[in-house]
Design a protein around this nucleic acid. Structure first.
Lengths: 346, 346
DNA sequence: TGAAATGATCAAAGCGGTTTGGAAAAATGC
DNA sequence: GCATTTTTCCAAACCGCTTTGATCATTTCA
C-alpha cells in the first residue's frame, strides 16, 4: 500500500494525507483523526526510503563494530552499549545501522556509510591512540560522537568517556593503602586509548609513592576470561608473586579469580583484586555486596548519552562539541583486603 | 555529489554511469574502468536510499533485539550472533538494521519494519512457545529466519536451531553414568522455547532411568552469573544437596562455580557441573582442556547460517523453507567427575 | 453585501537513483 | 558499398514520498 493508493481510498490528496500523518497544522483535526485511524487499520506506514529521499534525512545512525585485532572477538560491552543507544533512537524515530567489519576495514565502512548517505550520524567505538577515523569523519562533515576519545586534538569533536586515568589511579591507591606493593596490572590491548590512559593512572599512583611499575607484572591483552587466567597464573607462579591484581574488566577478573583458586588461594584474603566494571546487564557484579571491589560506570548509560548527544548534534548544526568525562564510583566489594603481614615492610 | 553531477563531470549520461558501476555488460570495458576510477577518486557512491527506492529492494536485514523480560537485560549471545550474521551481510552488500525494543513491543517493531519497507527480510531472535511473531511475519509476506524455533507448525518457515532436547539429554546421561543421582538443573526462563526443550531432554534422561525430576532442584531464570550463584547456593545449602549441576549457560555456570567454592567445595571433585556453551568469543571455555564439561555449538556460526539462509530466501522467492537442527558436541572438561562414593547407592 | 482574511485541500515539482525502449555509431556480411 | 547486426550510449519514465505555491471554500469585517 503506497501513499497514492491510500489517499485515494480516503478520497483525499496525497498532500493532505502526508500532512495529516506528519502532524502539520494545516489539516483539520477531524481529518487527521480519520487519516490516522485508517492508516492503523490498513497498516499504512510511509515508505521509509522514499521519505528519507524526499526529506534528505536518512533517519538512521551508523555504528561500526570492529571484530577485534587478531581473534575474531566482539567486545562484549557492545550489547549493552547498543541497548542504551537503541532506546534513545527508538524514542526519536531513528533506525540503527550496524556494520560489523574486520578490524582494519573500519575506515572504509565509515566512508561508505557517509558517501552512500545511509546515515545522518555515526558513533565511533573503541578509539585508538591518534585514531585516523576522527580525521576522516571530520572530513565527511557527518556529525559523530566518540565513545571514549582519541589522544589528539580533543578540541573539536564530541565524546563521552570515563576518567580512566583517575579511576585507575584511585584503584591503585586503594591497593597501596591496603599495604600491597607488588601489584599486577592486567590491561586491555595497548593501542586502545582507554588502555593507555589506565596505564597512566596505574603508573601515576605508583610513582606517587616512589614505587616503580614492574614490567613483569603488567600485561596488555584482549580482555577475555582466558587471558585473565593465563596471565594471572603465570604471575602467581613467580617467586615474587603479586599480592594484588588490578584488572581492566570483570570478565578478565573471572579468569584471574580462577587462577587464584587453582593455586589453592582465596581471593580477598590471600590475593586482592580490583577491577573496572562496565556494569553489563548479564554480568552484574554481585547483588548486595559486590563480588569484586572496583571502579564502575555503566556502559549502557554511556550508550544512551552518546545517542542523545549525537541526535542533538544532528538537530542543531553548528552546536559546540559535547565532551563528557565521567567520574567512576569506586565501590568496595569482597575481593580486597590488607596485604599479608609478611609483605607489609617492603 | 550525485549521479547527475558526477556523470556530467565524466561527459557521460547518468544511464551509462549507473550501468558501468552496476556491472552491466552494455558498457565498454574501458568506459567502465574510467567510471570506476573517477568514482573512487571523487568519492562518489550511489545514494543508498535512492537506489533502494528505484530497485524496490531495501538491501537491508532487520534484527529486533528484545531487552529481556523483567530486568533490562540484553542476551549476551547477541554480540556474537550479530557478528556472524554481519559478516555475511557485508559480503553480500546488505545493511543490518537493529531495533532494540522492550520485551513486549517486539511485534510492533517487526510490523513497522515491514510496513515501512525498510528491510527485505528479518531475523527472529529468542522465539517463545507459540510465538505470535511467526504468524505476524507470515502475514506480512516478508522473508524471515528464526534463530531457534517455536513449538507450533514447524512446517512452513525457516529456522536454524540446535537439538536442545538431545543435547541436554546426553549431558544428563553423562552425569547419570558418572553415578550422580541428585542433579540440579538451572535453566533459562520458561516461556523461551529453548528452555522448554532443554527441560524435556533433562527429564527424558531421568525418566529413562526411572528417576523423577525434583522440582526443588530445578530453577528457571534469566541466565546471569547472579542467578547461577543464588540458585546454586540455595540448593547446596539443602540437606540433600545436589552432587551435580546441569547449567544452561556458561555465564550462569560461573556463578554456580562461585557458589560451590563459597562452600569450600571443589568443582569437578565434590560437585560436577555440565553446561551448554555458546562459544562466545570473549568467554572461551578454557584453551586446551575446557574448564566446563558441556555441550556446545557456536552461536556465531548460527548467525552466519541464519544470514545465509535468509539471503538465499530473498534471492529465490518461493524456495522451500530451510530447517537446520544442529547436533551439539559434548566435550569433556574439568568440571565433571564421578559422584562421591557415599552417593552411589541411591 | 462585497472585500479581505483565514482555513482546508490539492497539483506538481523535486529527492537521486534504475531501467526501458530507442537511437547513433561501429562492426559485420554479402 | 550498402544492408544488417552488434555495440555503445542516451532520454525519459518511474520508485513513493515531502513540500512549495496555488486554488477553492469558508469566515470575518467594514
Amino acid at each position: 500500500m503506497n501513499l497514492k493508493q491510500f489517499s485515494k481510498l480516503l478520497g483525499l490528496s496525497p498532500t493532505t494525507v502526508s500532512r495529516a500523518l506528519g502532524g502539520y497544522p494545516e489539516v483539520k483535526e477531524e481529518t487527521r483523526r480519520r487519516v490516522r485511524d485508517a492508516a492503523r487499520q490498513h497498516g499504512y506506514s510511509p515508505n521509509r526510503r522514499a521519505a528519507s529521499l524526499a526529506t534528505g534525512r536518512a533517519m538512521a545512525i551508523g555504528h561500526v563494530i570492529p571484530t577485534a585485532l587478531n581473534h575474531e572477538m566482539v567486545n562484549p560491552i557492545f550489547a549493552d552499549f547498543i541497548a542504551g543507544a537503541g532506546e534513545v533512537y527508538a524514542r526519536a524515530g531513528y533506525d540503527m545501522l550496524l556494520s560489523v567489519v574486520p578490524d582494519g576495514d573500519e575506515e572504509r565502512a565509515y566512508r561508505q556509510m557517509a558517501d552512500a548517505g545511509s546515515v545522518d550520524g555515526l558513533i565511533v567505538h573503541g578509539p585508538r591512540d591518534d585514531d585516523p577515523r576522527i580525521a576522516l569523519l571530520r572530513e565527511t562533515g557527518l556529525p559523530f560522537v566518540v565513545h571514549g576519545r582519541a589522544a589528539v586534538e580533543q578540541t573539536d569533536y564530541s565524546f563521552i568517556d570515563i576518567d580512566n586515568a583517575r579511576a585507575f589511579q584511585r584503584a591503585t591507591d586503594l591497593l597501596l593503602d591496603l599495604g600491597h606493593r607488588r601489584i599486577a596490572f592486567l590491561n586491555g590491548l595497548e593501542g586502545m586509548d582507554f588502555a593507555r590512559r589506565r596505564r597512566t593512572g596505574f603508573e601515576r599512583a605508583l610513582t606517587g609513592r616512589s614505587l616503580v611499575p614492574l614490567p613483569d607484572l603488567m600485561s596488555s591483552t584482549e580482555m577475555t576470561e582466558h587471558q585473565g587466567h593465563a596471565n594471572a597464573a603465570r604471575m602467581l607462579a613467580r617467586a615474587d608473586a603479586p599480592t594484588a591484581f588490578l584488572v581492566s574488566s570483570l570478565i578478565m577478573a573471572i579468569g584471574v579469580r580462577r587462577a587464584i583458586e587453582d593455586r589453592g588461594l582465596r581471593m580477598g584474603r590471600d590475593v586482592s583484586v580490583v577491577i573496572h566494571d562496565d556494569m553489563l546487564s548479564y554480568l552484574m557484579n554481585g547483588e548486595d555486596v559486590p563480588i569484586f571491589t572496583g571502579t564502575r560506570s555503566s556502559v549502557r548509560a554511556a550508550g544512551r548519552r552518546c545517542a542523545e548527544v549525537l541526535l542533538a548534534q544532528i538537530g542543531a548544526e553548528r552546536a559546540p562539541p559535547v565532551q563528557d568525562v565521567w567520574e567512576c564510583d569506586l565501590v568496595l566489594g569482597g575481593s580486597t583486603g590488607p596485604a599479608p603481614l609478611s609483605e607489609r615492610r617492603s
